[in-house]
Design a protein around this nucleic acid. Structure first.
Lengths: 166, 166
DNA sequence: TTGGAAAGTCAACAAGGCTGACGTAGTTTG
DNA sequence: CAAACTACGTCAGCCTTGTTGACTTTCCAA
């Protein structure tokens, strides 16, 4: 089954079998992807939702709540709960907008930044190991397929973030 | 920051910036990955948990409850709730084990198989489009990085499934 | 100046994780 | 054979994180 019973088109990688393997790989890999931050957060009253908020606030300091809303793809009520605990615990600062007072500009405090570093260092550690084991060629392919898998809106978001720094 | 401040080792793909992009790509891509099945399931009383159960029962017909438990990585109470509704609704059949009567061998009914097809066709559709857009080389890399990202236990699980059919 | 849109908050609910405790049937082992 | 262990199911209760609906404050444009 691993041989070239190919119709001559070189499309062997598009069989349902191959696609299923890709689907299962995504499933198991995503578990690994979130495992380390989850472990750190567990028991400290925070969860994956807090991690995501912290990540993107760090990523775009001064961003507004509704920006964050679009990035995370949740309702504002859901995000608000997470944000409130982060503000109460002094990890995030929500400053009233200068130009538009309806907006809140979000920043990590020093304490928030410290947690962000801890989380992202753990996650990058795993990523780095995987990248190193797979090699640059594979990494290129990895990113290409992931991008192609996103919804157009998500892809635009991702592209915008990518350009941000880099 | 995008230029060749490389130490000469060709490890540019391991910078924190590159790793961050990989992390965000995983985040957005996973949303796309689950979007289509979620859409189908929504409003029909089922969720992602049901999808996962159905997928792996289809994948390994006759599997036992505790096998499924290890694959999915949830508690039996959690799985049981899902499984019960699937059995009640006639999508899954739980036959008492022939050799060991304590076990329940799980199978999809015709109705369950129909839903499985609908779900997995949607998910494969997206996967196929992504694979086709990215090309075989990229797909190879994609799978390599994902495997490297799994926890050893998850990787063993995945390997075993992969060999199953292939 | 007023009406609508945008930003954010509060309340209540649902899905789907979790732990702990327990029951029952079937299997294995001393 | 009795005791211990295993597989499965279930009850109760908790937590996180998603949802909708109703509300206030602020801003802007007609």
């Amino acid at each position: 089954m691993a041989e070239t019973s190919n119709g001559g088109e070189g499309l062997l990688f598009l069989t349902d079998e191959q696609l299923r393997k890709g689907i299962e790989a995504m499933f198991f890999a995503y578990r690994g992807f979130t495992a380390d931050p989850d472990r750190i957060l567990e028991g400290m009253d925070y969860g994956r939702a807090h991690h995501r908020a912290i990540h993107f606030i760090h990523r775009s300091p001064g961003t507004t709540v509704s920006n964050l809303l679009t990035t995370l793809g949740v309702t504002k009520q859901s995000l608000n709960r997470v944000l409130r605990t982060l503000v109460e615990d002094g990890l995030v600062e929500a400053r009233v907008g200068r130009a538009d007072k309806r907006e809140r500009n979000l920043h990590l405090t020093e304490k928030g930044a410290a947690l962000e570093r801890e989380l992202s260092e753990a996650q990058r550690g795993r990523m780095r190991a995987a990248y190193r084991a797979a090699g640059p060629q594979a990494v290129q392919g990895f990113r290409t397929v992931l991008e192609a898998m996103m919804d157009p809106d998500q892809r635009r978001q991702y592209q915008r973030l990518k350009e941000g720094k880099s």
